[in-house]
Design a protein around this nucleic acid. Structure first.
Length: 558
RNA sequence: UGGGGUGUAGCCAAGUGGUAAGGCAACGGGUUUUGAUCCCGUCAUUCGCAGGUUCGAUCCCUGCCACCCCAGCCA
């Protein structure tokens, strides 16, 4: 935990409850539907549910809300488990499925019918829609609403035994067709779906709806706080209605909080799915996506995601969090946990004409500027090296501290060099720089008093390994791409740039770290999906803060 | 024009009937062989707006405004 955080309103409610009744347990649940992959918004919910319970020595269930066999699949359930674990949470023996309760749910429906609180409706979807009314007009009672209890019982049993086709009948709660809350206008609680369920196979052909299954599953598991997002606020009266009418042993309490939105990204399963189907991205784990699997592949440490979720807080206010906060969390975590290396993303060759071309000098380089325990390594220096193209400017502004014609710069851990000559090709593009070095300025030798303003990174040409490095930018131009249905038009065509980078020799070693900082270039991580033996592909996780870029930008605009 | 929510800085977010925490961003300065990190400093006379109650209101009351959610046999 990096910052002292004030208690959010949910924790305050829980604290008050505990004060009023010291025996009250904290049992929460994370209830995903296995019909897609988890994203950053889910991470917020996971973090909230698990940490709130953890803080009070309570428990959290991972419960799959698998009540719609048409949309759900086991592969999603597997990925969800992997993602939750990766974030660092453990549900222990509390892995459950709404489908575990299908039998109990069925009995609960029977109870409702017997109490005269549910009825079988023959209306089709179209008719039901027409009779539901509108936001300002009440609905109309179904002509089947006052069926006898025995008839309802009989019909419901026939629904279960497969006597009717999909859509022919539904079971509805009998509440109030004129309620201003649409959820209370006799909601459907069971529908017929002659479809193989991923877990119960063909045992059932009727499936409970979310409101019914969710409220009761919470009650069955003894959930004390059922935390969900704001759009379920209007469902709370229905949630409570089921709990009250069925007189369950446990009475869970639903509390809603606002979902997380991240600027320039999408946190909607449906829209994410769209991107994948249209091949705009490389699957659910594309590193530009804020799916958990995408962020994992990108190289975001789970700790940074948890830290982020803690910092954004929990309220009922709509929000769009800036990407900068997430990136700050990632940098902070990686800064303290990764070793430093050197690598050139866009190389330009430098020949040091006064350095013996047959000589190879091994120079000492620290693996971390502040953590000596990370040790050091030796890097080879020769007369031909690569430096970053952007570290040389022919026409440099006064405050440009890097290399320019006739100017000097320090090569990190090596010598100070001076640019003597610029060699260009027929197109005017710089092909090579001819420099001289000052032998007295060897790093750490203390022989020279010479000081230069700039230090740049470099790699020995002879020893460099060429690797594919993927540089990312935001996937969307639109601050809130989710607000539009036209996702395509806000796609940033330059969100992925592939570079043939020159990396220092040590990154080719067997025990080379999988994630590291390339000094002055950012944090990088091996792409587990694209890398093969003999071919390593790296993702830039995040850049370093770049105040020079800011100065340049300000100079351009001002 | 029904119901349910929400409005505190550019983005998040505390807060109390006694005079606006913190983080991110931004800006200025110091240290630095990463223009990184780190450190220091600046950044709301005002809490959606208008009235009212009060010695005193961001907090209590009234009215208004803005935004979000709801008319699936999805979750």
């Amino acid at each position: 935990m990096k910052t002292e955080l004030a208690k959010d309103f949910i924790r305050q409610i829980i604290d008050e409850d505990i004060e009023n009744n010291s025996s009250r347990e904290v049992i929460t649940r994370f209830p995903p539907e296995p019909n897609g992959y988890l994203h950053l918004g889910h991470a917020k919910s996971i973090c909230l549910n698990f940490s709130v319970a953890e803080e009070k020595k309570g428990k959290t269930f991972l419960r799959f809300d698998d009540t719609n066999p048409v949309k759900e699949d086991e592969i999603y359930a597997e990925s969800i488990k992997e993602d939750v674990s990766w974030l660092g949470y453990n549900w222990e023996d509390r892995l459950t499925f709404a489908s575990d309760y299908f039998g109990d749910l069925y009995q609960a429906a029977i109870t409702l019918i017997k109490k005269g609180l549910a009825y079988v409706d023959n209306q089709n979807a179209e008719e039901m829609k027409n009779n539901r009314g509108t936001l300002t007009e009440p609905g109309k009672n179904s002509e089947f609403r006052d069926r006898a209890i025995n008839e309802n019982l009989d019909l419901f049993k026939k629904m279960k035994s497969g006597d009717f086709d999909d859509g022919e009948m539904v079971l509805r709660a009998k509440i109030d067709m004129s309620s201003p809350n649409m959820n209370l206008r006799d909601p459907v609680i069971y529908r017929i779906r002659k479809y193989n369920h991923q877990r119960t196979k063909d045992k059932w052909c009727i499936y409970p709806m979310y409101d019914f299954a969710h409220a009761l599953s919470d009650a069955f598991e003894g959930i004390t706080y059922s935390l969900c997002t704001l759009e379920f606020q209007d469902h709370r009266p229905l949630y409570n209605w089921f709990i009250e009418q069925l007189e369950t042993d446990h009475r869970p309490r639903q509390i809603e909080f606002s979902r997380l939105n991240l600027a320039y990204s999408l946190t909607s399963k449906r829209k994410l799915n769209d991107l994948i189907e249209k091949n705009i991205v490389d699957g659910w784990d594309d590193p530009r996506l804020v799916t958990i699997s995408g962020m994992r592949r990108r190289g975001y440490p789970p700790e940074s995601i948890i830290d982020f979720c803690q910092r954004v807080g929990v309220t009922k206010k709509d929000n769009i969090i800036e990407m900068a906060l997430l990136e700050n969390c990632v940098r902070e975590e990686l800064g303290n946990s990764t070793q430093r290396r050197m690598g050139v993303l866009d190389p330009i060759k430098v020949t040091i004409k006064n350095y013996d071309k047959d000589n190879i000098e091994y120079l000492e380089a620290q693996n971390h500027p502040k953590i000596p325990e990370f040790g050091s390594r030796k890097i080879p220096f020769t007369n031909e090296i690569f430096i970053e193209r952007s570290d040389f400017l022919e026409d440099a502004p006064k405050k440009f501290f890097r290399l320019k014609p006739g100017g000097e710069v320090r090569l990190r851990y090596a010598y100070i060099i001076c640019c003597e000559e610029v060699i260009k090709d027929s197109n005017g593009e710089i092909k090579e720089l001819i420099c001289t070095y000052d032998p007295d300025t060897k790093s750490g030798s203390g022989k020279s008093e010479k000081k230069v303003k700039g230090t740049i990174h470099w790699v020995s040409k002879k020893h460099a390994i060429t690797s594919e490095v993927r540089l990312y930018d935001r996937l969307f131009h639109d601050h809130n791409p989710g607000s539009s249905e036209d996702i395509q038009s806000s796609i940033n065509p330059k969100s992925l740039k592939i570079s043939k980078a020159k990396l220092e020799e040590s990154l080719g070693e067997e025990n080379a770290p999988n994630s590291f900082q390339l000094e002055r270039n950012g944090y990088f991580c091996l792409d587990a999906k694209l890398s093969k033996t003999g071919k390593r592909v790296y993702n830039r996780v995040v850049t370093l803060r770049d105040t020079w870029a800011k100065i340049e930008k300000a100079a351009l605009s001002g």
